[in-house]
Nucleic acid binder design. Structure first.
Lengths: 144, 144
DNA sequence: ATGGATGCAAAGTATTTGCATGAGA
DNA sequence: TCTCATGCAAATACTTTGCATCCAT
């Protein structure tokens, strides 16, 4: 029983069948340290011996995203990336040199939340449901 | 002399020639209230009577982005959008219903900046250069 | 068995590249 | 004149769709 067990249950709860490819994809997602693009995820599947099709990967990701199992990240390169949604609320550090993506959890006090949402509702009449915050810069490895 | 005069000078400063298409593109960008995609910008050019080519638009946008004249925005739909960079630091409100994009300027106190950058540098050894913060939700018009 | 899941091919959309021509400086 | 800018076509990349087949339930 690894980390992907919980997500498999979510899959079932959403009426999804538990197929080998799905199981493998969830396992990959749960062990990945960085969000993966469809291409990367497909490559990982193949490395595991599943000769899956890209169409399937796209469809899986779309389904899981819709079901709230994974979340989607958009950076500056036109490629979407996915990570498990239950990895907790965090933000991303994107290295401008090596493109590595790291996570960062902000202390509650620094998290842009309640006050900003209130202000936006008051001033703009816009009801914030979620936010995404990314930091671009140079990572430790590239700064050495 | 409209708002695009300053950006035309930036263009010159970057060794760029001032061509009709460039002038028009900058004027369009400076009068747009929302960030525009290459496709939209091309359509706007054509409406103005410039039968420009999409390749040209892409190249212009790439050049201006590299020169820091415009900034690039990536949402969830796989299309890049561009807006003038000197419109001041702000963030975006993206409506999940109608896809409208509005700007919001956060009061200095709520802006995620110095403290967070320091914390990230200390904890992650990551040197933040810039950040992007987007809010997703439902806009005033769609909430009525 | 039966409806959702998969694979394959083809189509659709966004973006980039090569190369010949055109026009600012 | 001499580059840089432009247009066109073709290529590449990413994603979606149609349809026949397969398999988890």
């Amino acid at each position: 029983m690894d980390d992907s067990t919980g997500t498999i249950n979510k899959l079932r709860a959403n009426g999804g069948r538990v197929t080998p490819v799905r199981r493998a994809l969830l396992q990959i997602l749960s062990s990945n340290k960085q969000p993966g693009s469809p291409r990367q995820l497909l490559a990982q599947l193949k490395k595991k011996g599943f000769d899956a099709n890209k169409t399937t990967v796209y469809r899986q990701l779309e389904m899981m995203h819709g079901a709230g199992i994974i979340s989607e990240i958009n950076l500056s390169d036109g490629v979407k990336r996915y990570e498990l949604a239950d990895s907790g609320h965090h933000h991303h550090l994107i290295c401008l040199r090596c493109a590595r993506i790291d996570d960062v959890v902000l202390p509650a006090g620094l998290e842009p939340r309640v006050e900003i949402a209130k202000m936006i509702k008051r001033v703009k009449k816009f009801a914030v449901e979620r936010h995404s915050l990314e930091f671009f810069g140079v990572c430790a490895r590239c700064r050495e």
